[in-house]
Simulated assay, not measured.
Amino acid sequence: MSPVASPSLGRQALGSRLSSLFWRHPRLFTLLLLLPPLVWLGVVYVGSLFALLLQSFFSIDEFSGLINQEFTLSTYAELLRASNLDIIIRTVVMAAAVTLASALLGFPIAYYGARYARGRWKAFFYVGVMLPLWSSYLVKIYAWKMILSKEGILSWLAAKLHVSGVLDAWLSLPVVGGNSLSVSATGTFLVFVYIWLPYMILPIQAALERVPGNLIEASYDLGADPSKTFRHVLLPLAMPGVAAGSIFTFSLTLGDYIIPGIIGTSRLFIGQAVYTQQGTAGNIPLAAAFSVVPILIMSVYLWAAGKKGAFDAL
Rank of each mutant, 00 (worst) to 15 (best):
P7I: 08
L9P: 00
S19M: 11
F22G: 11
R24P: 06
L34I: 12
L35I: 05
V39A: 10
W40F: 05
L41F: 12
V44R: 03
G47V: 12
G47D: 14
L53D: 04
S56L: 09
F57V: 06
A82F: 01
N84H: 04
M94N: 11
M94H: 00
T99L: 07
A103P: 03
G106P: 03
G106V: 01
I109C: 14
Y111F: 15
R115N: 08
R115A: 09
R118I: 11
A123H: 07
A123L: 12
A123C: 09
M130C: 00
L131C: 00
Y137R: 01
V139W: 05
K140G: 00
E151N: 13
E151W: 11
E151L: 15
A159P: 05
L161P: 02
G165Q: 10
D168P: 12
V183C: 08
A185C: 02
A185M: 09
A185F: 06
G187Y: 11
V193K: 09
V193L: 10
A207R: 11
G213C: 05
L215W: 06
Y220G: 09
D225E: 01
T229M: 04
H232V: 02
L235V: 13
L237E: 08
P240N: 07
V242M: 15
I247K: 05
F248H: 07
F250E: 12
F250L: 08
I263L: 07
T265L: 11
A273D: 01
A287G: 11
W303M: 15
K307H: 01
